[in-house]
Simulated assay, not measured.
Amino acid sequence: MGALRFAGYAAIFDAPDRGGDVVRRGAFAGAGPVPLLWQHGGDAIGRIEALEEDARGLRVEGVIEAEEAARLVRIGAVNGLSFGYRARSVGHGVHRELLRLDLAEVSLVAQPMQRLARIVEVAG
């Protein structure tokens, strides 16, 4: 079936995740290319071709090249997105606020930490 193109949100701003962290607008400023992983581990399963902050969160566009991962996304069995990072600046209030991050990777996941971090478009 081949590669699968997708777009979605790896992070949603101002929404507490399952661990109580909140990503703030501007946290990903200056982020460069990162790999696309499966469940935060192993070898890359594709590539992230574009990432940018918009009003909602960190929007990503990419290509899934691993056949089984592409199949699972294509049939809707997996649609979660997540990201790996190193915190550079953190605030503390009601929630831990992630203010500046070094983005390490974006992953396809079955259960994202941020419930709204999902693939929103699929082509191919």
Rank of each mutant, 00 (worst) to 15 (best):
E52T: 05
I48D: 02
V63G: 08
R5F: 06
H95F: 14
Y9D: 06
F6A: 02
A29Q: 13
V34W: 03
A69H: 00
Q114R: 01
R25A: 09
D102V: 15
F13G: 02
A77M: 08
V90F: 08
D17F: 09
R96P: 09
W38I: 00
R86F: 06
A31P: 10
V90Q: 13
L37S: 05
R5C: 00
H92M: 15
V23Q: 01
G93L: 12
A31Q: 09
R96Q: 14
F13M: 04
G80V: 00
L4I: 01
I45A: 02
F13A: 06
Q114V: 07
R25W: 02
E121T: 12
E67N: 00
L108R: 05
A11I: 01
A70P: 04
I45E: 06
G76V: 07
Q111S: 10
G26S: 12
P112Y: 02
D14G: 11
A69C: 03
R59K: 13
A77I: 00
M1C: 02
I64Q: 05
I119R: 03
A110Y: 10
R25E: 10
G19H: 14
G30N: 10
A10M: 02
I45K: 09
R18P: 00
I48N: 07
D43R: 12
L51S: 04
A29W: 10
A77H: 02
A123Y: 09
L99R: 15
E68L: 10
E61V: 10
G26A: 11
I45H: 06
E49D: 14
R24L: 15
E121N: 06
A15K: 13
P112M: 05
R115W: 12
A3T: 11
A70N: 10
Q111A: 11
G57Q: 05
A7H: 00
E68G: 01
A44Y: 05
H95G: 08
A69E: 06
F13W: 06
F83I: 01
S89E: 15
V23S: 01
G46T: 06
E67G: 05
P112D: 02
H40C: 10
G57S: 07
D21H: 11
G46Q: 04
G42Y: 09
V90G: 11
G8H: 01
A44V: 04
E105D: 14
A104K: 14
A50S: 13
G20V: 07
A55D: 14
Q111I: 13
G57F: 04
D14M: 09
L72K: 06
A104I: 12
G30I: 11
P35L: 07
E121C: 07
R88W: 11
P33K: 14
R100Y: 05
R100D: 13
H95C: 11
A7W: 00
I64F: 04
E97V: 11
V63H: 09
V73D: 00
H95P: 07
V60D: 02
E53Q: 08
V122P: 05
G93T: 14
V106H: 02
P33Q: 13
G76W: 09
Q39M: 08
Y9L: 03
V120Y: 03
P16Q: 11
V34M: 06
G76N: 10
E97H: 11
S82W: 03
A27T: 08
V94W: 10
H40N: 10
S107T: 03
H92T: 15
R100W: 07
G76H: 10
W38C: 00
A31Y: 09
P16D: 12
A10W: 01
G91N: 12
E68M: 07
A117M: 04
